[in-house]
Amino acid sequence: MMRRILTPLANPQLIALVGVLLVNWLLFPNFFRITWQDGRLFGSLIDVLNRGAPVAILAIGMVGVIATKGVDLSVGAVMAMAGAVAATMVVAGYPAPVAVAAALAVGLACGLWNGFLVAVLDIQPIVATLVLMVAGRGIAQLITEGFIVTFTDPVLIYIGTGSFLGVPMAAVIAIALMLLVTLLVRKTAIGLFIEAVGVNRAAASLAGIRSRMLLILVYGLSGLCAAVAGIIIAGDIRGADANNAGLWLELDAILAVVIGGTSLLGGRFSVPLAVVGALIIQAMNTGILVSGFPPEFNLIVKAALIFFVLVIQSPLASRIVPVRATAREAHK
């Protein structure tokens, strides 16, 4: 029983996260200091949660897609679209709940469109989602007419910058989504079917799994998550920046999923570990910012750290651990 609780904690992703946080602490001794300020928690660790939330939310959607041997390149552009829709609607006078619902609907529709291309038309995911990656940002720019659409709607701003019990709203939403999606895939058979389709779609079809429906579902979820992330970052800067919102974040989301141990070849996946992957990336980013490195080194430092994390969880490294374990068992 004890082992069943502890085993998931002893995985390479959590070790890597703790490692990166410790490095941050060495570079910046106040890294773990959290204070209470204006009714909210305040500190670098909270920043990691808050700033990591958009990518974490993208990763929650992306992990299912990647587990089916797919990829969703459009999430960054969908973020921009969702933010643009929400912002222009509140500026036009619609109530915030309507604007948020419309933005979520746009994200869902984008995801379902991707799913349709992949599942029904059988277009390769990387190509199918590239369509929206390119077109989506253009559509977002059309919606905002090239402006940064700023707004003062308190609800939208609360989603981006508010806090709940002292925790930033973005982090609360990310955690809630993580729990929700984890329950959705693990308490139903959906998770197993996603893995089955990712491992062997032909066999899944012969075993009676409706793989088309499933693919449309996972891409739809990815689009929905992207919309949530898009609303959050628009709320954060009180404006929809169609040019920059979510730019390149699809790559961070893919990286988070991969760091979370899901293979790009599909199959086994874990939603919580993808979120941990996103936190690892953000912990690096925040660490670089507080460390005082010259910005010219940002990308190099980040690349080196990611390389390190990927090495930790490479097949070679994981082989070393079981070898020891079997050796110990042999002694028993």
């Binding site: 197993l192 893995e195 062997n200 032909a202 066999a203 899944a204 012969l206 199959g267």
Partner: peptide, 20 residues
């Protein structure tokens, strides 16, 4: 190519059609 789900467990391979 069409029968097994190589990376999934024996258990999952057995129950998958029933679950489907």
């Amino acid at each position: 190519a069409e029968g097994i789900f190589g990376d999934l467990s024996v258990r999952e391979n057995i129950i998958i059609a029933l679950q489907g």
